[in-house]
Design a protein around this nucleic acid. Structure first.
Lengths: 340, 340
DNA sequence: CTGTTAGCGCGTTCAT
DNA sequence: ATGAACGCGCTAACAG
């Protein structure tokens, strides 16, 4: 079977009029006799005519597509962000080209090239945990393609960003544990390469300082977010001469993994050790005990990021400033930190 | 700032040679002097040249893009399928255009149009639960655009499909409960409009028949997969004069919701009522007790579907047959059906 | 080996 | 109100 899509020419011929007229009728141009328009519309409908965006995009040299590069798809966080972004994009007729970097720098670079090749009008990015070189982002800037970072942002590129208040969130989470009477609060932190890891670590430390607690380096472990390693670190913490009585994890997957390990070890949560995560992922309400966590407005992150990107796309970029939108987090208390 | 991407012409001018030569060098055509090629490649690199897929796609009248239409993004199932599909597509240089129908027929139709307009080379589809009219799928067939259904397939369209053995899976799940000594096994089924609902229901019934158990209509509830309603149905079941002692749910989100309700009601799982789901979603290992479920090879579904689609795209479709690939499920036993 | 030309489908001038 | 002609960037077919 031949693949053949109906074109304007096809319908022009059938109606024995010029392609330009058909084009005008289809695009709702006023200067077309209404009966002509009528005829065109009907035939188009009947022949299943669909505008060829490939052609339109080429001649308008814009793709009406925004790219999204995320590290992964496994946790519920990124899919939900994407949903939010897609909603906004769809409202103004934009498509979305999604790609995952699989937490690998090389893949991220490759994905960026695909975006470039496909002439996306703008890109939403959340970086890999191992991205330390930003040349592939710079290319977008040089070519005048708007960029918006979210979640895992890059501060070496001057561009809008959408984040949650990681510092404040971590501060509150830690303070919550302190107010619960916990004395030795450990922190399973993310890699320092990620800004969010550093901010959350800072918040954790400042909460301890505010309440005049010592900051114990033994209790702070920075790891690369490879979940398999959580077991090792949690065991290490539990085997300490004086083990922690609380754990603040950099994100929910980490916290959930930690809870599993702690339960395996036969310790009681939250009595012997309380746990707090960050994100309010899908799993945090499911695990037993429920995970106390800092909720992020996930969908909203996607919406705001997409809106910021569209603003940039439509505005004369010379007038525009690299704002950072900081969204609020909210403490969700569940059984992992407090018996009800 | 002006948006301007480097073109072949730009580099042709700088090198003072013809565009065709540049094009040939870039595409690895053999008939180019190696020093010429060298020069072109270097300059291209240096100028951050990226092939304009928009142009290539237009002139080759194919987009090197496959579309994926899924009902939602919330459960982990579809994102993982998409990951699988993306892997395969990426290997052969295909991009992926993703859209969610939000379980709404109208959105699905609209998405199909977007796919058409973007001239995707093929489409992967899992239908909405409310899709009963298939005209929008037929359009693809008429235009010669290959289609592959997965998971929620449509049997009125002659096209390849990728499914798991829902019948067998449901049969095994039910039999598992029977062998556990459960006498009154309820089934929270999906809407009859979905083939998978019907198949799972069939498997459930046949397992009962095989073991000479009565099929009690009271214990079979078909619902529209709106999770909020699970509570109502489960309560109804529990309030029956002789309530069920086991529940087989059509999918994991339903089962997980059911477990929550059952726990709220103060009943013990699995002693008073055992629960089995279908899918082995992310949450099923997290909830307490762990959910016994039929695991689907989720990622593989995406891979196989994408491969089937690519085969169709690359093959002369006249020679090709609408195979249905049936993948195997596997029973994962956890605490919701059996104490260890 | 390299340059020239045509055409992919559409929107958009510029004429009429 | 309509038609003709051009260009978007690139590849392929056709000369040299």
């Amino acid at each position: 079977m031949k693949r053949h899509q109906v074109t304007i020419i096809d319908i022009a011929q059938k109606l024995n009029i010029s392609k330009s007229t058909v084009s005008r009728a289809l695009t709702g141009h006023p200067s077309v006799r209404s009966d002509t328009r009528q005829a065109v519309m009907e035939l188009a409908q009947q022949m299943d005519y669909q505008r060829n965006m490939l052609a339109i995009n080429l001649s308008s040299s814009q793709s009406k597509t925004i790219g999204i590069i995320v590290p992964e798809f496994v946790t519920s966080f990124f899919p939900i962000v994407i949903m939010g972004a897609q909603e906004i994009a769809a409202q103004v007729g934009y498509s979305v080209l999604i790609s995952q970097s699989n937490e690998t720098y090389e893949t991220e670079v490759a994905n960026a090239k695909v975006m470039l090749a496909n002439r996306v009008d703008g890109v939403l990015i959340s970086m890999t945990r191992e991205t330390k070189n930003f040349e592939h982002f710079d290319v977008f800037k040089r070519k005048g393609i708007p960029l918006v970072f979210f979640n895992r942002v890059c501060h070496d590129i001057e561009t809008p960003k959408v984040v949650v208040d990681d510092y404040e969130g971590a501060f509150k989470a830690t303070e919550h544990l302190i107010l619960l009477g916990k004395e030795r609060i450990a922190h399973l932190a993310g890699p320092p390469s990620l800004y969010i890891s550093r901010k959350r670590l800072e918040g954790y430390k400042d909460a301890l300082r505010k309440h005049k607690r010592p900051i114990l380096d033994d209790l702070i472990i920075s790891y690369d977010l490879t979940l398999e390693k959580v077991k090792i670190y949690v065991k290490y913490l539990l085997d300490l001469p004086t083990p922690p009585d609380a754990l603040f994890a950099v994100n929910d997957p980490t916290a959930i993994e930690a809870i599993k390990v702690i339960k395996e070890q036969g310790l009681s949560i939250p009595e012997q050790i309380a746990v707090v995560g960050f994100s309010n992922d899908y799993g945090s309400a499911l695990i037993e005990p429920g995970l106390t966590t800092m909720a992020q407005p996930t969908r909203e992150i996607g919406q705001v990021a997409a809106q910021l990107l569209l603003d940039q796309i439509h505005t004369d970029s010379s007038v525009w400033k690299p704002i950072t939108r900081v969204l609020k987090t909210e403490l969700i208390i569940r059984g992992s930190s407090q018996r009800n």
